[in-house]
Amino acid sequence: MQFNRRDALIIGAGAATVALLPMQAFAAAGDDEIMAFTGGADVTEGGIVLTAPEIAENGNTVPVAVSAPGAVSIILIATGNPNPKVAKFTFGPLAGSQDASTRIRLAGTQELIAVAQMADGTFARDSKIVKVTIGGCGG
């Protein structure tokens, strides 16, 4: 995808809007969910991959995938949604791998966070910013 000046302006404007939001409240929304999941244990980067489009065509249906080999469960958090909880995936003994895909709703441009609990009780996270285009006509 090529970016031109107008794109840069639009993306810049989006970033500025995010920057103007009260960041603490913003972060805390997802933090509560993560705290409830981890019980306050350390969460490291790596060992989990969250896949989501950089720009979603429509916030109503955004394809996402999580993958964390060896995980017991994975939670998915949408930090910019009115309710940050998206889903919790728990893998049973017959899971062929610890990954899953689904389609989710995003209220706007925001950070998605996935946290996995590994079999040894440790936690790992990954995050992605998804830009959601709003406006235009689209009938």
């Binding site: 109503n60 249906t61 889903a87 893998f91 062929g96 989710i104």
Partner: peptide, 18 residues
């Protein structure tokens, strides 16, 4: 195999692949 807890953020006509 898998259990999923869903919230209102899962799209209409829920889809899962695993």
């Amino acid at each position: 195999v898998i259990t999923v807890s869903l919230s209102g953020a899962i799209s209409t006509n829920p889809y899962f692949q695993f």
